[in-house]
Design a protein around this nucleic acid. Structure first.
Length: 646
RNA sequence: GCCGGUGUAGCUCAGCAGGUAGAGCAUCUGAUUUGUAAUCAGAGGGUCGCAGGUUCGAUUCCUGUCGCCGGCUCCA
């Protein structure tokens, strides 16, 4: 056993070390500082505990907080710390799983009593105490049969061991009293954990399955430094401040009425202006890009939904059918069948294709109570929906223009950062797919080539396609770095078959067209909510419900202010006049809180000279300017749809 | 749907070991004519989410129900 291993370091240098050497030993040889900062190692590509002896020749890399992948390990170790604290305070609690997440970590517990917010505080304090004990995380190898015996009082752990463990598995201790079945790796000891905070408790089902017992999930977050933690908490606070539900009320944009029912949105006059502007832009684009605008009914016979298949596989999401004198009718959860009926109302020639039918179609879907969320998750919403019926050799071009269109939406509304996902059928391996393999191949190739052509980065999500066809999803990244699913471009191989769609091809025979479903805003309501949060309520001028407000200083300037207001309105600017007998300070404060882009102060001096004193919501007092100039500059912003707040 | 929390004036919130409620802002009235984020004074406004129960008495305790919030699940 006195063999030695050949270690390759990231700089390409080699080192011979005796068996039994750990990555931490190597770090120490390189430098005390590195050994101090080290949290975990990468050995031959996989993450490895610092104190775990090397087992062969290896490429070894010592990872510190500078390596982003370290954060997951760090948070995972914090999750163990949480579990250890819970067990100390509440012995007998059952442990579920405790993974890191994108923003922190959680651990699931089963306990008859609910954790209260006070419990959370106590737990967090106990975590700090345990942390201060400077306990090591130690990796232990255990035989499966032994492990099952050891964890016999922890049913979830036993289940996990049964399902996941090899004959010999790893577990990690945290001091003398805590041990957890876990793949690892972990940071070497609790002294490394410098900044963490528990955030919430909530219910979560074991394995995410509602037929399984419900557990209590404690969420927390952890960062390498208290400073980063504080910044994260500030971001959370910022997100809370720009919550679209809060802004929607403060800015009087929309409401949800208890008397009318949850998940149903009322757009108030100001929200109505914003929404209409968003919709008008889309309608204009439809017409510019070769789409036809159609309208389809909101309720249709249930037979239609039987033909489409929705009555079967989508029934959970549909409103209960209503009985009319001749038949059952169904509120529409989708627009596709309506567009299909228009397509097949007459015989189509290949010369007619592609047929692009677009609609701002309002659909109703049954969402379980408890799942609704402001504008983002509702029961009635409007899709900027279109269906493209085309020939096989047209699909690539069609997908390309859909993606270009989608990118144009993002740019127009001020999102510069976005990403895409290409969901594929994975060769039909999972067997859940409908449609001929040739069609899948054809469509997936077209999608992949289109993605490349428009220069999108698309992550391939194997086996994530819908059963009826592959798709591309576009996600945007907002001002706070949050990702939102937005546009989707999906093939549908099922509906053309179910509705026996056809066109007469050049060969004089009937062929089945390909059908592409695409929505770019996704849902207008949801898009509205995303925009609202992205801009924190300060909509770009072209979208702002009120673009300018005229503020006379005293009622001596009222006549002049009325003229100014009239000029603005004549110029097509959405302007209001604050003619109350109030101090200008108050008027400014309120206009500012309403996030009105331009406040035009009209006092005696301005009335004399035909000017207004311009105050911009972000830039502040800009001084007096000739009214003509001000009008032109506001108009310029509106016409150019500028998203810059200046 | 499930787990936990929560529901008091238009808004934000206080209060109640059970004795039918209070502030600030908003609203209305009056005064103030005011130069870049809140002028002053007075008045009005709530069947304490809804329905039962316990009690001499319930906004307060209990049960049910509805909405909302944080999650799970699902998705636009």
């Amino acid at each position: 056993m006195s063999q030695s291993f050949d270690i390759t370091l990231p700089d390409g240098s080699h080192k011979a070390v005796p068996a039994g050497t750990t990555p931490l030993d190597i770090a120490r040889q390189i430098g005390e500082r590195l050994a101090n900062d080290a949290l975990v190692a990468r050995v031959n590509g996989s993450l490895w505990d610092l104190t775990r002896p090397l087992e062969s020749d290896a490429k070894v890399e010592i990872l510190t907080p500078r390596n982003p992948e370290t954060l997951e390990v760090y948070r995972h170790s914090t999750a163990h710390l949480l579990a250890a604290a819970v067990l100390e305070l509440f012995p007998g609690t059952q442990l579920g799983i405790g993974p890191p997440t994108e923003t922190g970590f959680f651990y699931d517990f089963e306990r008859s009593e609910p954790f209260t917010p006070e419990d959370l505080q106590r737990i967090e304090e106990r975590m700090r105490e345990i942390q201060a004990r400077n306990l090591p995380y130690e990796r232990i190898l255990t035989r499966k049969d032994e492990g099952l015996q050891k964890y016999k009082d922890l049913w979830m752990k036993c289940q996990l061991i049964q399902e996941k463990a090899a004959d010999v598995f790893t577990e990690y201790t945290l001091g003398p009293n805590f041990i957890d079945f876990c793949r690892g790796p972990h940071v070497p000891n609790t002294s490394k954990l410098k900044a963490f905070k528990l955030l919430s408790v909530a219910g979560a089902y074991w394995k995410g399955d509602e037929k399984q017992p419900q557990l209590q999930r404690i969420h927390g977050t952890a960062f390498f430094t208290p400073k980063e933690l504080a910044e994260y908490l500030e971001r959370l606070e910022e997100a809370r401040k720009r919550d679209h539900r809060k802004l929607g009320q403060e800015l009087d944009l929309f409401s949800i009425q208890e008397l009318a029912g949850p998940g149903l949105i009322f757009f108030h006059p100001k929200g109505g202006i914003v929404r209409r502007t968003i919709e008008d832009w889309m309608r204009e684009q439809y017409l510019n890009r070769g789409y036809s605008l159609v309208y389809t009914p909101h309720v249709m016979r249930r037979d239609l939904w039987k033909t489409s298949g929705h009555a079967n596989f989508y029934s959970e999401n549909m409103f209960t059918p209503m009985e009319l004198d001749d038949a059952e009718y169904q509120l529409k959860p989708m627009n596709c069948p309506g567009h299909i009926l228009i397509y097949r109302d007459r015989q189509r020639s290949y010369r007619d294709l592609p047929v692009r039918l677009g609609e701002l179609g309002t659909v109703y879907r049954y969402e379980r109570s408890g799942t609704m969320h402001g504008l983002l998750r509702v029961r009635g919403f409007t899709q900027d929906d279109a269906h493209i019926f085309c020939t096989p050799d047209q699909i690539e071009g069609e997908v390309v223009s859909c993606l270009e269109f989608a990118i144009d939406v993002l740019k127009t509304f001020g999102f510069s950062s976005y990403e895409a996902e290409l969901s594929t059928w994975d060769k039909g391996a999972s067997g859940k797919y409908d449609g001929a393999p040739e069609l899948w191949e054809l469509a997936e190739k077209a999608l992949a080539r289109a993605v490349e052509k428009v220069g999108l980065q698309a992550k391939v999500m194997a086996d994530e396609a819908a059963f009826y066809g592959p798709k591309i999803d576009v996600k945007l990244v907002d001002a706070l770095g949050r990702k939102w699913q937005l546009s989707t471009v999906q093939f549908d191989f099922t509906l053309p078959r179910r509705f026996e769609l056809e066109y007469i091809a050049e060969d004089g025979h009937k062929h089945q067209p390909l059908m592409v479903h695409r929505a770019l805003y996704g849902s207008v309501e949801r898009f509205f909510g995303i925009l609202l949060e992205h801009y924190a309520g300060a909509f770009p001028v072209w979208l702002a419900p009120v673009q300018a407000i005229v503020l006379p200083i005293t009622d001596k300037q009222l006549d002049y202010a009325r003229q100014v207001h009239e000029r603005l309105v004549q110029a097509g600017i959405r302007a209001t006049l604050d003619d109350r007998k109030e101090k200008v300070n108050l008027k400014i404060r309120e206009a500012q809180l309403q996030k009105i882009p331009f406040m035009l102060v009209a006092g005696g001096r301005e009335a004399e000279s035909g000017t207004v004193a311009v105050r911009h919501r972000k830039l502040g007092d800009q001084g007096a300017k000739p009214l003509d100039e001000v009008i032109a500059s506001i108009q310029q912003r509106i016409q150019s749809r500028s998203v810059a707040d200046e």
